[in-house]
Simulated assay, not measured.
Amino acid sequence: MDAQSRPPKLMDRVKATMRVKRYSPRTEKTYCYWIRYFIRYHGVRHPASMGAPELKAFLEHLAVERHVAAATQNQALNAIVFLYRHVLEQKLGEIGEFSHARRPRRLPVVLSHQEVMRVLSHLSGPMHLMGNLMYGSGLRLIETCRLRVRDIDFDRQIITVRAGKGDKDRTTLLPASCVPALQHQITLAQQQLSSRLHHGCVPVSLPHALDRKYPNAGVSLAWQWLFPASRPCFDDSGKTVLHHIHPSAVQKAVKSAMKAASLPRPGSCHTLRHSFATQLLVQGTDIRTLQELLGHKSIETTQIYTHVLGNGFAGVRSPLG
């Protein structure tokens, strides 16, 4: 049997299926990790020869021996279910009862406005703007990294978040104080694009084969990353492209700024988004509007911020006054 007639390998089928269904690159990487782990755990047996009992044993292993978090165990479960349902097209059967990883309920760390300002004062250049957007617009870290020129609407003062969590689009606030820095960042994107066109025409990475539908999109200003990586890389097809800044670089800068600000509580990039939510609630923003701005699927996720503020007790006062 030659290479062309040979059936595709399992992991190639997994990746192809995820791309057809438009899963994000991060989800693809995560699911592939758990599927490989599941196969290795069971002695490199093919998943088609396994089923619910093997999945149950794997989930037990993660909870009891690996002590993973509940979200991690659920992530592994979702990956294996995806494999059987969409790739192997094979019924998994009833998993039955298994040891669930503990899901502790913890309130998010939030900062006061003054504390956030102290943190932001220790950031500079694009990192300062990215910190401002996570706090001023409530963006997730990866959403900030993925912003393109076309996502900024100065006239309506909104930012469009495209293919956010759950592959959903939404709009959120564009802080007026960020306008000059955003305009400067777009000017830099224009200058960098002109330089790349002059020296070899390296396009930006595009979603879901958009470059085939719009061949010039990768070298148009609208599709340029606001926060590009420092150097080009190769995409899955081996083509040289310019990707956005890696989230780890932003995490490192924000962590350093948090430390320099001498905060009483540890924080992260997501702390800036949490602080956005609590500040809007303090200002009287209704919970439904906040849910839309944050892009939460469930109102229960948004309501956690009312508990952070102590507003979840329907006006009940302590007997001590």
Rank of each mutant, 00 (worst) to 15 (best):
C145N: 01
S5D: 12
L197N: 11
F154C: 03
R40A: 09
S49F: 12
E65R: 14
S318Y: 04
G51F: 03
H122M: 09
K213C: 11
G315T: 11
A277G: 02
L62V: 00
R140E: 06
A70D: 12
D151H: 14
F227D: 01
L123N: 09
R150N: 11
Y41S: 08
M11R: 13
H61W: 12
S237R: 15
G295S: 03
R162E: 05
K168W: 04
Y33A: 06
S194G: 14
P175E: 03
L320V: 07
V44H: 15
P266D: 08
H184P: 07
A222K: 07
H46Y: 03
T30G: 08
F227P: 05
V64L: 15
L62I: 02
A249Q: 13
A249P: 10
S49H: 14
R105M: 13
L174T: 03
Q114P: 10
A71H: 10
H86K: 11
M130E: 05
R288Q: 02
E28Q: 10
E28S: 04
R288L: 04
R45Q: 12
Q224V: 05
L133N: 04
L210C: 03
D155M: 09
R273W: 02
R103C: 09
H46L: 03
M11Q: 13
R170G: 01
A63Y: 03
M117N: 15
K252S: 04
F234M: 11
V119D: 07
L193W: 00
G43S: 01
P108L: 09
S5C: 12
E28N: 06
Q75H: 03
S275T: 04
L193P: 00
C233A: 15
V119G: 06
A277N: 03
Q191W: 09
V81M: 11
